[in-house]
Design a protein around this nucleic acid. Structure first.
Length: 526
RNA sequence: GGCCCCAUCGUCUAGUUAGGCCUAGGACACUGGAUUUUCAUUCCAGUAACGGGGGUUCAAAUCCCCCUGGGGUCACCA
């Protein structure tokens, strides 16, 4: 039988990083087995703008390169793939269950049901559905219906037996039906509820493997019973661990981003993200993007390969040593048997490590393209840049080498894309390296003369000039290099100094040194 | 609270199904050193774990029981 897996997101306007991990495992299992991966949109009745709500979800799949065989935009033989459009299927299934007596119309007032539940809770006994309505004769039901009495439809749990599954990751799990409440499967208005719609849809879509997060384990007995009553082939189940917050055990949640912001484990990621996001005109504080969302990583300049690698290794391993894996490698080696049982915390450090690895694998062209896009977004480079600009960016990217782990890191090298008069100094370092040391300004002034009279302004030539200068003045390299770096780049750290000078060019370097000298002197006066 | 799930370095994990090859392996992070006259990289080294208690056995991280701890879920949400 062909393996068919599905991922059924609700259109919420963003794609959760944990959600896409579940989708990834479904995709992997389908691809590994030459099967189909289906995307079904579990939208309910009142939904907001569908483009707005679904767009980001499909974008996330496309960005990561996870294609779907059936679903929105691609169609398929088992459609429609929007749950809201499958109502006739649900209605027919509901009729079937009603007719067979597997379900009953419950006319009990909602407040009565609630009161019973609360009473049971108070008395510390198990609450079970009263089933008063289940005992109604056909005539009585017809009468109530004619009288327009509102009712829900409940599934009649076969008490006195157990349900069990042999879960691919959890093993044998069993539930006592005698403890289960008859679940509502249709609302007062006749619309289907999740557990019921899911069973109907999974059955009709011929899903063979339901791979979903562990939190759904408690939904499983009801769904299994529903499948039985519907006469569906029972799918196999794999309840995978959910993605937990860094350091914690709790489900990673959009609601807790404020807390994550304070967590040490998340510190570096937030810092990087804040810088990149604000440079590209997105306010990091408004939480339209956060590390809980897939889009966050794209906007900060992560690679699909990096994110995918981290996600795959969260709760799954190939063996005892393989860490860096392409999607293809994971796909070839994926197995549900090697999925771990315990929930796994997302580790931003490890994610960054995978990311750096894959960034290192990129060709110069790909790297250049990613960086250019980022620079354009940050307005440091014009849209559709000319060849000169492109060459400049390429040179910077090459010089930056592995300092660029994510494309957003190029924005930290903005000194190459601004003019001498708009260059920003790192205040503290400038004080420490240029203003405070007594001879720094004088040395800079003298060195400037030397640099100005050099015909050949190359990295090697500059190196020789500065070395000669150091020798002649009988100072240490460390007494002039930091000041020079600060003057020219505004920063204390960065790429190799002499190639940096060459890249900036003689004129620009001189302008920057002049400005630094002026600035330092005015600071000294005050 | 009921039901269910889970438990190896700080983190992600290997090892658990078929007990011995485990004086518990790898990776990330961290610390130290070398290289790089900054930073980043690279290289080398180091710190660091079987939650506790009982069994079974010649032998237990691995099997059994109890405890503890963590988590999920208990809707006319999905």
């Amino acid at each position: 039988m062909t393996v068919r897996t599905r991922f059924a997101p609700s259109p919420t306007g963003y794609m959760h990083i944990g959600g896409i991990r579940t989708a990834l495992f479904n995709w992997l299992w389908a691809r590994k087995n030459g099967g189909q991966f289906i995307l079904r949109i579990d939208d309910t009745d009142q939904q907001r703008n569908m483009d707005e709500a679904l767009g980001p979800i499909l974008d996330a799949f496309r960005w990561l390169g996870l294609d779907w065989d059936e679903g929105p935009e691609v169609g398929g033989d088992h459609g429609p793939y929007f749950q809201s459009q499958r109502r006739d299927l649900h209605d027919a299934a509901l009729e079937k269950l009603l007719a067979s007596g597997a379900a009953y119309r419950d006319f009990e007032a909602a407040e009565d049901t609630r009161a019973q539940r609360e009473a049971a809770e108070k008395e510390k006994r198990v609450y079970l559905s009263s089933r008063v309505s289940a005992g109604l004769t056909e005539a009585e039901v017809t009468e109530k219906l004619a009288a327009g009495e509102t009712h829900v439809v409940r599934f009649l749990i076969p008490r006195g037996r157990t349900v069990s599954i042999d879960d691919h990751v959890r093993g044998h799990v069993e539930w006592d039906c005698g403890l289960m409440v008859d679940p509502v499967i249709a609302r007062g208005d006749g619309s289907p509820l999740y557990n019921f719609a899911t069973a109907v849809d999974d059955g009709q879509l011929q899903i063979t493997h339901v791979i979903r997060a562990q939190e759904h384990l408690s939904n499983t007995p009801a769904q299994v019973l529903l499948h039985e009553a519907l006469g569906n082939d029972l799918p196999e189940f794999a309840h995978i661990p959910f993605v937990a917050s860094p350091g914690g055990r709790k489900k990673l949640s959009k609601r807790d981003v404020d807390k994550y912001r304070k967590s040490p484990a998340f510190q570096k990621l937030f810092q990087l993200g804040d810088e990149v996001l604000s440079a590209t005109g997105i306010d990091p504080a408004d939480q339209s993007l956060s590390p809980v969302m897939v889009a966050y990583y794209r906007e900060v300049g992560f690679l699909p390969a990096g994110v995918l690698n981290a996600l795959a290794r969260l709760g799954w391993s190939l063996d005892d040593e393989t860490e860096n894996m392409s999607l293809q490698t994971v796909q070839q080696n994926f197995s549900l048997e090697r999925v771990v049982k315990a929930s796994a915390g997302l580790d931003p450090d490890k994610l960054m490590s995978y990311q750096s690895y894959w960034m290192g694998k990129l060709s110069a062209e790909e790297k250049l393209k990613g960086c250019v896009d980022m620079l354009v977004k940050a307005d440091l480079v014009p849209e559709n840049p000319d060849a000169d600009t492109l060459n400049m960016v390429a040179a910077v990217v090459k010089l930056a080498a592995d300092r660029i782990r994510v494309f957003g890191d190029i924005l930290g090298m903005d000194e190459f894309f601004v003019s001498a008069d708009t260059l920003k100094y790192s205040e503290k370092d400038f004080q420490k390296r240029v203003v405070k040391p007594e001879p720094a300004v004088d040395l800079l002034r003298e060195l400037r003369q030397l640099l100005a009279t050099t015909d050949e302004f190359t990295a090697d030539a500059m190196h020789i000039v500065v070395e000669g200068f150091v020798e002649q003045k009988e100072i240490k390299f460390g007494q002039i290099a930091p000041a020079l770096r600060l003057s020219v780049t505004g920063k204390a750290k960065g790429a190799d100094l002499f190639p940096t000078l060459e890249l900036l060019g003689q004129e620009e370097c001189l302008r920057r040194i002049d400005r630094a000298i002026g600035t330092a002197e005015s600071m000294k006066v005050v």
